[in-house]
Amino acid sequence: MSNSKVVIVTGVSSGIGRTAAVKFVDQGCRVFGTVRNTARAQPIPGVELVEMDIRDEASVQHGIQTIIAKAERIDVLVNSAGVTLLGATEETSIAEANTLFDTNLLGLLRTTQAVLPHMREQRSGRIVNVSSVLGFLPAPYMGLYSASKHAVEGLSETLDHEVRQFGIRVALVEPSFTKTNLDLNAPQTASKIPDYNKELGVVSQAIQKNVRKAPEPDGVAATIVDAALGAWKMRRTPKGEASLLAKLRRFMPAGPVEKGLRKTFGLT
């Protein structure tokens, strides 16, 4: 075990993060999983749970120092924790936007900045940021979520150029619809503008339908493990819809891609 890769996965309470943590254990890694409250968290065999709120700088620093004290190094950071939001862009309050970006972008930044000094010192490391196909595609009524993932993509590509001189690489994993509680229980904006209600209802139903028929998180988790432990590649899309969408975005004209997206979300 002393030669095992030391892996941190944020947001292992459920969904993609939890499944990824299990798969890293299966690969023989020493895995630390972060949760906001260890007292309420369900244990994961082989995973050492660490209390950390990625929205709180002091909590992040304390969590990373706890891991360093135990493992003395960090080989992989997987930024998996995230939140979503459904609603028209015009309806989204600045407070709601701040909350979403504070988790999806700034939370990722806090954990990354906390582990980088240790990775620089050891002259090696891999950071895997869980993005989304919405990091390169639009999605009606998910404007701020999509914006946060576009931001994650830009940050990740830039950071990779900066840290590769230290033997550190940054990678992105871009899943599509995945059967998790995050999407099934997506919160909606508190404010409502009646003009948007009809379309928002259609989109919401389409998202629920797509999530229910979507694959379990195993495929995304396997892709995360490949991104962390395999040969470096900037972007990885899980097999299936995510890979297809990436190819369509790259090779198809914008018109047919836009038409297909609107159809996916139930819009004419």
Rank of each mutant, 00 (worst) to 15 (best):
L100G: 03
L100P: 11
D102I: 02
D102L: 01
D102Y: 01
T103P: 08
R110Y: 11
T111S: 12
T112L: 09
Q113S: 12
Q113C: 07
V115A: 09
L116V: 14
P117W: 12
P117G: 02
P117Q: 04
R120H: 06
R120L: 08
R120I: 04
E121A: 14
Q122H: 05
S124K: 07
I127K: 03
N129C: 15
N129P: 11
V130S: 06
V130E: 12
S131C: 13
S132G: 07
S132W: 06
S132R: 05
G135W: 13
G135L: 05
G135E: 05
L137W: 06
A139C: 07
P140E: 11
P140N: 02
M142D: 06
L144E: 13
Y145P: 10
Y145A: 03
S146M: 13
A147H: 07
S148A: 09
H150V: 11
H150L: 08
G154C: 13
G154I: 08
S156V: 03
T158H: 12
L159D: 05
L159K: 03
L159P: 13
L159T: 01
L159H: 11
D160S: 11
H161F: 06
E162T: 09
Q165S: 10
G167P: 14
G167N: 13
G167F: 04
A171H: 10
L172W: 05
P175S: 08
P175V: 10
S176R: 04
K179G: 00
L184Y: 00
L184Q: 10
L184T: 00
N185R: 04
N185T: 03
A186F: 01
A186R: 03
A186T: 09
A186W: 04
P187A: 04
Q188C: 04
Q188P: 00
Q188F: 02
Q188Y: 00
T189I: 11
A190V: 09
S191G: 05
S191M: 06
S191L: 09
K192V: 15
K192M: 00
I193C: 11
I193V: 14
P194D: 13
P194R: 02
D195L: 12
D195H: 08
Y196K: 05
K198N: 08
K198A: 15
L200S: 05
L200N: 02
L200Y: 11
V203Q: 01
V203L: 09
S204Q: 13
Q205D: 15
Q205T: 12
Q205L: 07
A206Y: 14
A206K: 10
A206I: 02
I207E: 14
Q208W: 00
K209P: 02
K209T: 15
R212F: 01
K213P: 01
K213F: 04
A214Y: 00
A214L: 03
P215V: 06
P217M: 08
P217T: 00
V220N: 05
A221S: 11
A221L: 12
A221F: 09
